[in-house]
Design a protein around this nucleic acid. Sequence first.
DNA 1: AATAGCTCCTGATGGC
DNA 2: TGCCATCAGGAGCTAT
Length: 278
Amino acid sequence: MPELPEVETVRRGLNRLVKGQTIESVEVRWDKTISNMTPEEFDAEIAGRTIEVVERRGKYLLFRLSGKKTLVSHLRMEGAYYTMPAGTEPGKHDLVTFKLTDDIDLFYRDTRKFGRMALVNDTDVMSVAGLAKIGPEPTEEALDLEYMVTIFGKSRTAIKPFLLDQSKIAGIGNIYADEVLWQTMIHPLTKTNDVTPTELAELRLNIINEMARSIAHHGTTVHSFTDAFGEAGEFQNELDVYGRHGEPCLRCGTELVKIKVAQRGTTFCPKCQIQKEP
DNA sequence: AATAGCTCCTGATGGC
DNA sequence: TGCCATCAGGAGCTAT
């Protein structure tokens, strides 16, 4: 499941592979992938535009196109981009083909068909659903401790789903939420307003560092994630808890436990991450 | 306003 | 072997 580091890895790959290329035409084989127009309108609107640069906000890719248009793309669970020589036959899960100059086809593959893309005017990007209320990027500059103290103090929900809420902090998904909670030794069911300012300061640094470290490793490969070169990231080798339930905690040796929190699989150490008594 | 629940999808997995 | 049921999971939407 692509989270911020995986999307950033894809962004960098796309800039090396398709920046400066012009889109000659588009073929859409799953209509719902294009969320704000029909495939015919999409082809008519995008044909002839040049990919000037690919940017990112949270887990959203922003293809900046000539003529002041932006293609907003969210990979959701299994979306992926890769290039092939022109005329390559699309596979079962290749939902969109962008036919580019220089005899390159850019394929969008998405096994579960959850991913969505929308073509909008540059000026309308921040009103696209999901981006309208997106929280700060998890970086030293953008994620301010005072902001965290304020938003955590206002909520009484469990911290695990709170970290997954993109309107609070952008980019964190199920894997990194479990990782940073383990690092900070916070139980996933802890109410956000029970987290102390000291813990929040530590959590903030762990989030920022975890994202940067994962980007440096080209993201985490679980299930089907591959970057734009078709290569897998290596950060899965650095994970401390995700996917390790039943195995010993790397800090205390206690067997890691997996529970459900707000419909999400959640792995944690029952000894290191103690839930606070009310 | 905050928050919980439902929905979209398909491959993988398990029971018999 | 094969068939059906169950499940995972990000985020947009609806309901409370």
